[in-house]
């Protein structure tokens, strides 16, 4: 009876894996063949990838995406780490307000956030009407929920108050204790949530298209423009994006696994 049940579970998981991976598998095969009108594709070719990798525009879009990921995520982490000092050291009650502010973007998602930012600042002629700056700001806000959760979970996990007290007893000022003791201890954990944020920005099309469009073309806008030109080339772009997200996700899970093992060995528990 129990064995039968286990088999059913395994079957269900296998089916779901196939179902979830099917669109990507088909895209991968599609990008590698010239024709697929029968049951099996024909005419194996690497032409799409060759075209893609020799396209300067592709590399530029990829670099832009990377740049925007790094700047927005670093900005988000820095401002939140500074703000969390105030919560940890002086006013713990502020935590719930900061959490609320950080969770708003999670509920809003792309369209509403981008439209409200564009309608407020575009055409004002100020520094804020710069499309690039708008996009950086919008992404910085978009990843706040992930970064906040990462920072808060890690601050809870390392017994921050004890570390702060110990450092203070040894003559550190609270500021020094926070930045020299607490922050270095939580940085590895924050790295995981920043990778997650990077994959969120990597997967975003709405914000990039609504706010910047052609004036700051990221990888998804590039893909969108290629869709109408060549489906072969587009499928190659999709495969590249998928592989990058795959790599980042794999790395996040690996790091989380290592982190948890370490915690188990140290006898630290999460609450």
């Amino acid at each position: 009876m129990k064995k039968k049940k286990k088999k059913a579970s395994i079957l269900l998981l296998l089916l779901l894996c196939v179902y979830l991976l099917l669109p990507f598998a088909v895209t991968l095969v599609y990008s590698l063949f010239t024709e697929w009108t029968g049951i099996l594709p024909s005419g194996f070719t690497l032409r799409n990838y060759k075209l893609l990798f020799f396209d300067a525009e592709f590399w530029m879009s990829l670099m832009r995406t990377m740049l925007i990921c790094i700047i927005s995520v670093v900005a988000s982490i820095t401002t939140l780490l500074l703000a969390m000092y105030v919560v940890v050291v002086e006013y713990p009650f502020l935590a719930k307000y900061i959490q609320f502010i950080c969770m708003i973007p999670y509920a809003l998602q792309g369209v509403i956030l981008s439209i409200s930012i564009v309608s407020l600042y575009s055409g004002t002629g100020t520094l804020f009407s710069n499309r690039m700056l708008m996009l950086f700001g919008a992404y910085g806000v978009l990843v706040l929920p992930y970064i906040f959760q990462g920072i808060r979970n890690n601050i809870n996990a390392i017994n921050t108050q004890m570390l702060m007290n110990a450092a203070k007893m040894l003559g550190c000022s609270p500021l020094k204790a926070y930045f020299k003791v607490v922050v270095p201890n939580i940085l590895p954990g924050i790295f995981v949530s920043s990778l997650l944020s990077v994959s969120v920005i990597f997967g975003d099309f709405v914000l990039a298209n609504n706010i910047a469009g052609n004036s700051y073309q990221n990888i998804q806008v590039y893909l969108f423009r290629k869709l109408s030109i060549s489906s072969g080339l587009s499928s190659a772009v999709v495969v590249v994006i998928f592989l990058m997200v795959f790599l980042m996700t794999g790395m996040v899970l690996l790091l989380q696994g290592i982190h948890q093992k370490k915690e188990k060995n140290n006898g630290v528990y999460r609450d």
Partner: peptide, 22 residues
């Protein structure tokens, strides 16, 4: 399965739509 869940949940937008079009 856990890996697949994480990967596919991060993957939406234009690429997903394109994959479905193919």
């Amino acid at each position: 399965f856990y890996l697949v869940l994480n990967m596919t949940s991060n993957f939406s937008g234009v690429p997903l739509t394109f994959a479905f079009m193919i």
